[in-house]
């Protein structure tokens, strides 16, 4: 069982969360021209990092907020967690 420290609620078991994928992916800006390549990168292409991976989780059975989690994909170790709107340095 992974334990994830929700920035709103505190340390909580993984089963209270659902996964949302790579958090570094940004939607192309609204109301601007979007190239096929940009759209492709946003919807489909993923870096799929081995090592530190910034990802989205939703605390769906807790506070229901989306959060960002920095987790190592080779060890599952979670180093930091952030609120959804927090910038990650």
């Amino acid at each position: 069982m992974l334990y994830i420290k929700c920035p709103h609620c505190g340390m909580r078991p993984q089963i209270e969360f659902s996964y949302g994928g790579d958090a570094s992916v940004k939607r192309p800006e609204l109301n601007k021209d979007v190239s096929d390549q940009d759209w492709d990168d946003f919807v489909y292409n993923r870096k799929s990092l081995r090592g530190k991976h910034l990802e989205l989780w939703q605390h769906i059975s807790g506070c229901r907020q989306w959060i960002k989690v920095e987790r190592d994909t080779s060890t599952h170790e979670i180093s930091r967690t952030f609120k959804a709107d927090e910038e990650v340095a």
Partner: peptide
């Protein structure tokens, strides 16, 4: 969730 760990979790 993304993983290269070649081991899983019980849930």
């Amino acid at each position: 969730y993304n993983s290269y760990a070649q081991r899983g979790n019980l849930p």
